[in-house]
Design a protein around this nucleic acid. Structure first.
Lengths: 226, 226
DNA sequence: TGTACATCAGTGAACGCGCGTTCACTGATGTAC
DNA sequence: TGTACATCAGTGAACGCGCGTTCACTGATGTAC
């Protein structure tokens, strides 16, 4: 049962995180400051310690939220209508990946950019959301393969294969190692385009980054044509 | 003519940059601090102002150096023996790209990672080294196409094409727009794998990142087979 | 329904530390005659 | 070759600001009888 007090507590925690995100957006992820958040909220710094035991704990919460938010966005894309066309479903999912990055650049930096100095992410806390997200990316691929709409031709190098099997077993991914590998390949490939777009290395040269990404995504999926 | 005094000045400037890089490696790029550098060098902070007018000017120097160092590494790879096999030359160059990133992770973060809060890179100062580096990446590709060892099949989307032509004209890249596009595609694709490797998102899942990158690079170059 | 008590939110001072930049200065090194 | 002078490297104090975390505290809100 959630008391009114607990409800209020959660609301304020959310508010703190909102201000934190706002501040990271302006000053960079590394510059997150409890004192600055307190100032913005018109509270004393010490009041924040009622909600988060330390700056690190707040950062961890923000990272978990970011991975969860990304996974939600991917899930929504997976649930969008695709008329049984699983390649289209995959397209939707990877389009959502970029959309989320563009709409939440700070969160994207937070989880995929430079690590924050003197902060160590506790892996066991973030990992479940990471797995959830990647499972969604893989889902469309598996659907496509199972329905004969896609074929995974490339097999991973032997050294990678062994490690992949361990990863799959540990996280209980419902995929074969070849499917996992194909998913990772599409992911890393598109991820590069997004990173370079986000940090302004691509737009000056390319111009229409939207079209570029669409083209890259199509090329990546084309490799899976039966 | 370079006087002894000027020579000494350059040496100290270099020393400052070395300490700066060392510090960034430990505390993150955003945490670069003049006072900390001075402390390490056993100088007063104000002495540093004889060499760099401000923290921003030092950062700019570090960025230019990083792009130059990357371009040098690419050039060395391009100059390595390849027996007229230009696909091999391209392989060498893109392998060097990753090697440089792994050997200079801080410099890589500095130029391709999160922007430093409150710092704006003066584009006109960094751009020449950026162009030099990318020209080397493209060179092998052009050689391969000209000698019939490679074929660029994919044409860029129309909206991108127009922008590409402007970019090529402006920077005087000695390539066709289709070649430039093919180069950008390989670059963004591999860049993603490197970023995810560097920030520890890939190694836990994949294990042998070396083999993974080699495989990805081969796949990317395979698309150019005649 | 009313009251006593426990729980919790938020305060304010303090600790010990960090930062970039400006300023007037001392003392060493180089240059011109 | 020796000396006067200009140039330059580096100092030290100061300005005005930032940070995370601990501690003893006040006053409001909720709970049990």
């Amino acid at each position: 049962m959630i008391t009114r007090r607990e409800q209020k507590r959660e609301n304020i925690k959310d508010e703190i995180k909102t201000f934190a995100r706002q501040q990271m957006a302006q000053e960079g992820t590394a510059a997150l400051s409890l004192r600055a958040i307190a100032r913005d909220m018109e509270l004393t710094v010490t009041a924040l310690y009622r909600y988060f035991a330390s700056r690190d704990e707040l950062i961890t919460a923000l990272i978990v939220d970011a991975f969860a938010s990304l996974a939600d966005a991917l899930q929504a894309a997976a649930d969008a209508p695709h008329n049984g066309d699983y390649i289209q479903q995959a397209r939707n999912i990877f389009t959502a990946y970029r959309q989320w990055a563009l709409q939440h650049p700070t969160d994207f930096e937070l989880i995929y950019g430079n690590p924050i100095p003197a902060y160590d992410a506790p892996r066991e806390i973030t990992v479940p959301q990471v797995i959830r997200g990647f499972t969604i990316m893989l889902a469309a691929l598996v659907n496509a393969v199972n329905s004969g709409q896609a074929v995974v031709r490339i097999t991973p190098p032997a050294s990678v294969l062994a490690h992949l099997e361990a990863t799959i077993a540990e996280a209980n991914y419902p995929v074969t190692s070849a499917q996992f590998y194909a998913g990772v390949r599409i992911w890393t490939r598109l991820h590069g385009a997004i990173m370079l777009e986000l940090f302004q290395h691509l737009p000056p040269a390319i111009g229409d980054v939207d079209a570029y990404y669409r083209h890259e995504l199509d090329a990546a999926l084309h490799e899976l044509m039966p």
